[in-house]
């Protein structure tokens, strides 16, 4: 048994919310990830045991979804959308800026273990605030190099206790319907051009 009593209790609790315990796999995996930061096989086996399933069934589910980590990530996780709508407004430049700032390529963790970042082709539903990213699951929209730097500095100062992860929300300055700040230059125009 590697899971904290609290996590086990949470799994027991979610299990009762559904007509079939199998439905509790995903919420349970979230509970595990919030405790440990990722999903080690032993934890999957423990979830399976708590739900009365074969461990392979839990693994099959855990590996299907992109948000469950099969390896331990850094303290904070950054996801940059580079799908079409964001790309039109400069997502590649955003990604390049982050890569340069963090000094490590997409899909990796900074040497100090502070950030894991990746650019994703999965549209994150922030097209109205493009370019955008998610930091520890929070939307950060209308990104500019300056805003990115500010966000990175702010987040680095926050603790990353996965148990209470993600940390309290700091509201985005612009609401999703508000137009982007009128900048003379703005992000490079032919955003989608490679």
């Amino acid at each position: 048994m590697m899971l904290a009593a609290r996590t086990r209790a949470e799994i027991e609790h979610t299990r009762r919310r559904y007509p079939h315990p199998r439905s509790a796999i995903m919420p349970s995996l979230w509970a595990v990830q919030h405790e440990l930061g990722w999903l080690p096989p032993e934890a999957m086996a423990e979830v399976a045991e708590l739900l009365g399933l074969a461990p392979s069934e839990v693994q099959a589910v855990a590996t299907f979804y992109s948000m469950y980590f099969k390896r331990p990530p850094g303290r904070h996780h950054i996801l940059v959308c580079v799908n079409a709508a964001c790309a039109l407004r400069g997502a590649d430049e955003t990604a390049a800026h982050i890569e340069q700032r963090l000094g490590c390529p997409s899909g990796t963790t900074t040497a100090d273990g502070m950030f894991t970042w990746e650019s994703t082709i999965e549209c994150l539903g922030g097209c109205g605030g493009a370019p955008m990213m998610q930091v520890d699951h929070h939307f950060e929209e209308h990104l500019t190099p300056e805003r990115i730097d500010a966000i990175l500095a702010r987040v680095a100062a926050q603790p990353a206790d996965h148990r209470d992860w993600p940390p309290a929300r700091v509201p985005n300055p612009p609401a999703s319907t508000t137009p982007p700040p009128p900048t003379a230059e703005g992000p490079p125009s032919a955003g989608a051009a490679g």
């Binding site: 079409a84 125009s189 032919a190 490679g194």
Partner: peptide
């Protein structure tokens, strides 16, 4: 209900590539 508008500087091959990548990534 989405509307994505592209200006004259847009490369349709690039946009297509990204959307294709998306389906490649999301194919179950």
């Amino acid at each position: 209900g989405a509307m994505m508008f592209m200006d004259e500087t847009t490369c349709l091959v690039n946009v297509s590539m990204r959307l294709v990548d998306f389906y490649h990534h999301e194919s179950c």
